[in-house]
Write a protein that binds this DNA or RNA. Structure first.
Lengths: 219, 219
DNA sequence: CGCCGACTTGACATTAATCAAATGTAGTGG
DNA sequence: CCACTACATTTGATTAATGTCAAGTCGGCG
């Protein structure tokens, strides 16, 4: 990210202990006081809010390399729960020490702003998905998004494992578990995907993207 | 916001010209290069993204006192269009000069982080609304949110004018204009609201909040 | 082997969208 | 001031998409 050696080592200094979070373990919960951001080293997480009547709404799935906790800066309290989808590992980044560094490493600050801004645009894309797309398009967009993120991390864009349950996917996409299941079956029948439990193979990435874009339908 | 006099005057120095935007005027459009944040001095705006097939999805309504453009920091290009809902006025804030100030005014930096973080949580709440709520609840939540924001700015929480059309409300809430119209009629019939064109009077704020919370229904 | 939880599939119900018309409102020019 | 137009909103009838309910089936694990 364009930092010099000495900057890196100063950043390293403030990065706190690594912390292992077992599958289903809580990284933080809503209303916890905010002291750390978390960089995911390994594994996957989900973040969710609680609806007024106690159900959960998943607001994102995060993977290794992504940053957790930025929503908490505004009030010094976390605004959602973060739970590990599998055995995972994070680095704690004490936010007040990070802010001190910002004064002396402008590049670091700039990069941090980009990450927050990126989170804003990510969420805007989800709003678009939830507000505008039909079930089939939502689910295709979800798969395309996962695929692109794995590709960006050097993994296969066509073969990957879903770390979340059908229910969690449905929750995230504003659909029921039954709808997700039917969509998977439909995509499978049309030979867009090969599916085995949580193992996904994308057979027709182009068509899948077309469905996500709304250009095409998978009757 | 806890800044000293001299800090304020330094901030004032970098704040660029005021800019008037007429109703329906464009403040910025998607893919414009990013140079300024905009503080709304007067009026209201909407921001929206374009769906892959060219329709718009409104991602937010902003009012005087709020900040526009933070989504553009990540890529130096705007990720949405911003359009004035009425004759409005903004202050341009050159972002690179703002970043220079951050180095010398930590309080300002901290405040800026809070604003970005607040935008993240705002969007998470919209995701909850779109992903979890039924039409009636969405619309009640929308009204309660507007009401609270006007109250926070010293205006009446029960009497205000909608600056956006029914269609824009529907677009934002993932509903059709017909649904919004029917919901307004229903709320009117139940004496929750008095409505005259875009003029709203909230007659039963408590019940409206209960509907937004999902505790109650308005059959 | 048998249980349990996750997932799939089918039948039916409900919500909100779509289509179609009627009504209202603001603005314009006579 | 009024007629007229364009556009926004309301209302009604019908349809389509997705949710709900109810059985199943599959796969992993003790």
């Amino acid at each position: 990210m364009g930092l010099g050696e000495s900057d890196i080592s100063r950043l390293d200094e403030i990065i706190g202990r690594r912390r292992k979070i077992p599958k289903d373990g809580l990284l933080y919960r809503i209303d916890d006081t905010f002291t750390n951001l978390y960089a995911i080293r390994l594994g996957h997480f989900k973040t969710f809010q609680l609806t007024p009547n106690g159900e959960q709404q998943i607001t994102g799935f995060q993977m290794a390399g992504e940053l957790l906790g930025m929503d908490a800066i505004s009030t010094d309290r976390h605004h959602c729960d973060a739970v590990a989808l599998e055995d995972s590992e994070v680095c704690e980044i004490p936010f007040n020490r990070l802010e001190e560094l910002f004064g002396t490493i402008p590049t670091l600050l700039h990069h941090f702003h980009r990450m927050m801004s990126q989170e804003i645009t990510r969420e805007q894309n989800v709003m678009l998905l939830l507000g505008n797309m039909r079930a089939e398009q939502r689910f295709a967009a979800f798969l395309v998004n996962l695929s692109a993120r794995y590709a960006a991390r050097g993994y296969s864009s066509t073969n990957f494992q879903l770390r979340m349950s059908r229910e969690e996917i449905g929750n995230y996409l504003g659909l029921t578990i039954e709808s997700i299941s039917r969509l998977l079956s439909r995509f499978k029948k049309q030979n867009l995907l090969r599916v085995s439990n949580r193992e996904i193979e994308v057979l027709e990435p182009v068509n899948l993207k077309a469905i996500a874009a709304g250009t095409e339908t998978c009757s």
